[in-house]
């Protein structure tokens, strides 16, 4: 335990930093992509609705490992080389977008048709309804699911290890290779992951009670 905290503290923090960077970029990109995809899915444009539905169906059902391998090792074969860290972020975002889209769509569906009819009866356009009515309310109802999404994306960042990016999981596995300290090294990572997950969940629960819309 001591040696991890003295000799390997810097290494460990770098790994944690990589996990944080992967998580934050993929999360922000997934939320943006999810909003776009959810807008596609409720839009009156048939090809966009179909594209959104097909996208979600594919990327919700694909294992991230296999997608990661296709993106990181497969794309260079067709002259597109994203590199390791961007490749991991791309794969995480492709999957994250599908889950974010479904999260937001559920939030939108929870608003209720009556409100939208009311908005339309006072002459709001489709864009206006999305901007003034759906987004402000949906953002609140989806806080909980969005925190779940964040935790999921954070946990999925561990797959970076599979393609050799040294995130938190990769780092403890590297330390274990050098020192063979048994389970302790891995428990350090487990505690850090759990701290972020539970911290995010607690934060989400607080935001949820504070911003809740009573219906």
């Amino acid at each position: 335990m001591q040696i991890i905290l003295t000799e390997y503290l810097g290494t460990l923090l770098r790994g944690l930093g990589t996990t944080a960077v992967l998580t934050v970029i993929a999360f922000v990109a997934s939320v943006a992509g999810g909003l776009l995809m959810a807008t596609f899915r409720i839009s009156p444009i048939p090809p966009l609705r179909a594209a959104g539905a097909v996208y979600v169906e594919i990327f919700r059902n694909v294992p991230l490992v296999s997608l990661l391998i296709v993106v990181v090792y497969g794309l260079p074969e067709i002259n597109l080389n994203p590199g390791f860290v961007p490749g991991v972020i791309i794969a995480m975002t492709l999957v994250g977008t599908a889950f974010a889209c479904e999260t937001f769509r559920t939030g939108i569906n929870a608003i209720g048709a009556g409100q939208i009819e009311a908005a339309r009866s006072i002459g709001l356009t489709f864009g206006g309804i999305v901007r003034e009515l759906i987004l402000p309310q949906a953002t609140r109802t989806v806080i909980g699911p969005t925190v779940t999404l964040f935790i999921g994306i954070m946990l999925s960042s561990s797959l970076a290890t599979v393609v050799g990016v040294r995130d938190l999981t990769g780092t403890v596995s590297y330390i274990n290779n050098k020192e063979a300290l048994g389970i302790t090294t891995f428990l350090v990572a487990a505690v850090l992951y759990a701290a972020i997950s539970l911290g995010a969940a607690a934060f989400g629960a607080r935001m949820e009670t504070r911003l809740r819309v009573l219906r």
Binding site: L159, V172, N176, N177, T185, F186, A194, S197, L198
Partner: peptide, 15 residues
């Protein structure tokens, strides 16, 4: 629920 599956797999593989 708060820990990645891969980390637990690594525990079984290496620890």
């Amino acid at each position: 629920r708060a820990v990645p599956v891969l980390l637990i797999i690594y525990i079984f593989m290496f620890a």
